[in-house]
Simulated scan of single mutants.
Amino acid sequence: MMSNEGLGMTGNVVYEKAYKLAIRIVNAYRYLCDERKEFVLSKQLLRSGTSIGANIAEAQGAISKADFRAKMSIAYKESLEVQYWLSLLKDTGYLKPKAFESLQADAAEVSRILCKIVKSSTQTSSNSKILSPN
């Protein structure tokens, strides 16, 4: 099993939390497919849940501030999508309330962090434009 340490992301709190969430999402996907025989909604959850960390990883290699903001914004939107799919899976009876609450709490935490990063990077960019001589 490959760890996220090979990507040079240790110490990056949001990446580490997103990576752990992705592992939980993969395990939830397996459960939903194997035990609950649900294949459509769970695939959407898998896609969005693993996309968060991938976009954060891409943001770390951004070639500009705008590129960084764009990737982190996508990661944030994917985290919101995860919360949607989790709610839908719970409300349709595929996901038990206890599992939902735990996964939802992790997804909400990642969303909050990403939202702060996106807002902060946007404010920094806006401030630099105001202060720029051009």
Rank of each mutant, 00 (worst) to 15 (best):
A59T: 00
R47Y: 11
A66N: 14
S64H: 03
I56R: 01
S51M: 12
G49C: 09
A75H: 13
D67I: 10
Q44K: 14
A66W: 07
G61D: 09
K77P: 04
G61A: 09
A54E: 09
R69G: 01
V40A: 11
F68R: 01
S73G: 15
S48P: 00
Y76K: 10
Q44C: 08
N55I: 04
E38W: 05
R47N: 13
A66T: 14
S73D: 10
G61F: 06
A62F: 06
A66L: 13
G53Q: 13
I52Y: 03
A57G: 00
K77E: 13
G49K: 06
I56Q: 00
V40F: 07
I74H: 04
E58H: 13
A57M: 02
F68I: 01
F39C: 14
E38C: 04
Q44E: 13
A62R: 07
L45D: 07
A66D: 14
G49Q: 11
A62S: 14
I52A: 04
K43D: 12
A75M: 13
E35G: 03
K77I: 07
A54N: 14
Q44W: 10
A66P: 04
A75Y: 13
E35L: 05
S51P: 10
E38P: 01
A57C: 01
L41G: 02
F68E: 01
E35P: 01
A75S: 15
R36C: 09
G49R: 07
S48N: 02
G49N: 11
K71D: 03
R36S: 06
R36H: 06
S64V: 01
S64R: 03
S73T: 15
S51N: 13
E38K: 04
S64F: 03
S73Q: 11
V40Y: 08
R36V: 15
V40T: 12
K77V: 10
K77R: 15
N55P: 05
R36G: 03
I52M: 06
Y76C: 05
R36Y: 06
Q60L: 05
T50A: 06
V40H: 09
A75D: 13
A59Q: 00
E38F: 06
K43I: 02
D67Y: 09
I74M: 07
G49F: 08
K71F: 10
V40I: 14
L41V: 02
S51V: 09
L41K: 02
K43G: 03
G61T: 05
Q44T: 11
I52K: 02
I52P: 03
A62P: 06
E38H: 05
A66K: 15
